[in-house]
Amino acid sequence: MKTQEELTEIVRDHFSDMGEAATLYVQVYESSLESLVGGVIFEDGRHYTFVYENEDLVYE
């Protein structure tokens, strides 16, 4: 099982292909040891929320 830090790095790496991230945040109260819930805000103003669970990243 991966730590939240490892899950955060996986998510950060995925979003790095989409541009320069200004902020990546984790909603600790919705996350667990198995999943990471949060969002990313890019330098150009785009904002996505995400759920990373079971090696699957879903974002909108």
Score class of each variant (00 low, 15 high):
Glu43Asp: 08
Ala22Asp: 06
Leu24Gln: 01
Ile10Trp: 07
Thr8Asp: 04
Leu57Pro: 04
Val37Phe: 07
Glu53Ala: 13
Ala21Phe: 14
Gly39Asp: 07
Asp13Trp: 12
Leu36Ser: 01
Phe15Gln: 03
Tyr52Gln: 00
Gln4Thr: 05
Val40Asn: 00
Ser32Gly: 08
Tyr25Ser: 03
Gly38Ala: 08
Glu60Val: 13
Arg46Leu: 05
Met18Gln: 04
Phe15Met: 04
Tyr48Gly: 00
Leu57His: 04
Gln27Met: 13
Thr23Gly: 03
Ala22His: 12
Leu33Thr: 14
Asn54Phe: 11
Thr8His: 05
Gln4Ile: 14
Ala21Trp: 13
Gln27Glu: 14
Val37Cys: 12
Val11Met: 05
Asn54Leu: 08
Lys2Gln: 07
His14Ile: 14
Gly45Met: 02
Asn54Lys: 07
Phe42Cys: 10
Gly45Val: 06
Val51Phe: 07
Gln27Leu: 15
Tyr25Cys: 13
Phe15Cys: 12
His47Gly: 03
Val40Asp: 01
Val58Ala: 07
Ile41Asn: 01
Phe50Cys: 08
Asp17Trp: 14
Glu43His: 09
Val37Lys: 12
Thr49Cys: 15
Gly19Trp: 10
Asp13Ile: 14
Phe42Lys: 00
Val11Cys: 13
Asp13Lys: 15
Lys2Cys: 14
Val37Tyr: 07
Glu53Arg: 08
Gly45Ile: 07
His47Asp: 02
Gly45Asn: 02
Glu20Ile: 14
Tyr48Glu: 00
Tyr59Phe: 12
Leu7Trp: 07
Glu43Asn: 09
Phe15Arg: 02
Glu5Cys: 14
Glu5Arg: 09
Ile41Gln: 02
Ala21His: 11
Glu6Asp: 06
Asp56Arg: 15
Gln4Ser: 05
His47Ala: 05
Glu53Leu: 12
Arg46Gln: 05
Val58Cys: 13
Ile41Asp: 00
Val58Gly: 04
Leu7Glu: 02
Asp13Pro: 03
Val11Thr: 02
Val28Phe: 14
Ile10His: 04
Val51Cys: 11
Glu60Phe: 13
Tyr59Asn: 03
Glu30Gly: 05
Glu20Arg: 12
Val26Trp: 07
Asp44Ser: 02
Met18Asn: 03
Glu55Val: 07
Gly39Trp: 15
Leu24Pro: 01
Glu6Val: 06
Gly39Val: 14
Glu20Tyr: 13
Tyr29Ile: 05
Phe42Glu: 00
Thr3Ala: 03
Ser16Met: 10
Val26Phe: 07
Phe42Gly: 00
Lys2Asn: 04
Asn54His: 08
Glu9His: 08
Leu24Tyr: 07
Gly38Lys: 01
Phe42Ala: 00
Leu24Phe: 12
His47Trp: 10
Glu60Cys: 14
Gly38Asn: 02
Ile10Pro: 02
Val37Thr: 09
Val26Leu: 05
His14Gln: 05
Ala21Tyr: 12
Glu20Leu: 12
Val28Thr: 07
Thr3Glu: 03
Ser35Lys: 15
Thr3Val: 05
Lys2Ala: 04
Phe50Leu: 01
Ser16Trp: 10
Thr49Val: 11
Gln27Tyr: 15
Tyr25Asp: 03
Ile10Val: 05
Glu34Met: 09
Glu43Trp: 08
Leu36Pro: 00
Glu60Met: 11
Thr8Glu: 13
Asp13Phe: 13
Met1Gly: 10
Ala21Arg: 09
Thr8Lys: 08
Gly38Glu: 02
Ser31Trp: 12
Gly39Leu: 14
Thr23Tyr: 15
Arg12Ser: 04
Phe42Tyr: 04
Phe15Ala: 03
Gly38Trp: 09
Gly38Leu: 13
Ala21Thr: 12
Glu55His: 12
Phe15His: 03
Lys2Gly: 03
Gln4Cys: 15
Gln4Leu: 15
